[in-house]
């Protein structure tokens, strides 16, 4: 039996714990044992993005201490995985002890869909959904991790679900962490376009695998088009499976 260590990032833990639960349920259903280190905190991405590298290093060292020996770490948030993979070795470049551990850790951390398809070799999660879905390619998952085929592979095997093309699927939704709050007009123009493309796609559900994008797109829909939903892939695959039984 495979064992993975769950990395549940702040946004999921605080706002969207159901995504964490769904990740756990989905992995359990696929025969994966999950462990969870309750010492885990934030990966440090907000500090890196704000330019506070000294503080980001504290987060990085803590993360490495907590997860350092795990065989596989899985997270339902691509940008946090990206931070660990790409920022840690650079943040700790002048501390050989930590840098080596960061470099050793990098290949062992996975975004959820990446783990399911590339490591577990699963594409059929046993899920069922009657309707059309579209997939939003989050920047850090698509360009940061190079993950795009995996989530689409998982979706293509959901019985009854039809994956429809989304115009501008690869275009940023305008979240960008602090960007959304600091440049509200630009960010709004971006998320508005994303939502318009979703509505025009004919899909009745928009799927993604990044909590930042989910808060942004979901927050805009909640305000302007409350009957249309956006959902995390983990929830979709976990819940849809339950429905069939």
């Amino acid at each position: 039996m495979k064992t993975v260590s769950l990395f549940i990032p702040c946004l999921v833990d605080l706002f969207l714990p159901r995504i964490g639960e769904a990740t756990y349920r989905l992995l359990a259903r696929l025969g994966v044992r999950c462990i969870y280190h309750s010492e885990q905190t934030c990966c440090g991405q907000p500090a890196v993005n704000a330019g506070f590298t000294k503080e980001a290093r504290l987060a990085a060292r803590h993360f490495i201490d907590v997860f350092g020996d795990d065989e596989a770490i899985v997270s339902p948030a691509g940008s946090c995985v990206c931070a660990v993979k790409t920022h840690y070795p650079e943040l700790l470049e002048n501390e050989p002890f930590w840098r080596e551990r960061a470099e050793a850790l990098a290949p062992r951390i996975y975004e959820l869909s990446q783990y399911l398809v590339d490591v577990l070799g699963v594409s059929d999660c046993g899920a069922f959904y009657d309707g059309k879905v579209a997939y939003h390619e989050s920047c850090h998952i698509l360009r940061g991790l190079g993950v795009s085929a995996q989530p689409k592979e998982l979706l293509s095997r959901v019985r009854g679900a039809k994956l429809v093309p989304l115009q501008g699927a690869e275009t940023c939704c305008g979240f960008g962490g602090e960007f959304a709050n600091r440049y509200p007009e630009i960010s709004t123009a971006m998320v508005k376009e994303k939502c318009e493309n979703y509505l025009a796609s004919g899909a009745d559900l928009l799927l993604l695998n990044e909590p930042g994008c989910l808060l942004n797109i979901g927050g805009y829909l909640s305000r302007h088009v409350p009957d249309r939903k956006v959902m995390h892939l983990a929830e979709f695959l976990a819940a849809a499976g339950r429905e069939e039984r």
């Binding site: 999921v12 714990p17 959304a180 709050n181 509200p184 998320v191 808060l215 909640s222 305000r223 302007h224």
Partner: peptide
Amino acid sequence: RKMPGLMNGWFASRNLPALAHKTFHKQW
């Protein structure tokens, strides 16, 4: 829908879900 004086930019066009009653951490 709004937090007076806080994150005005965000709330100009977006809602935010309330913080979950039980975090994942707590549930686990």
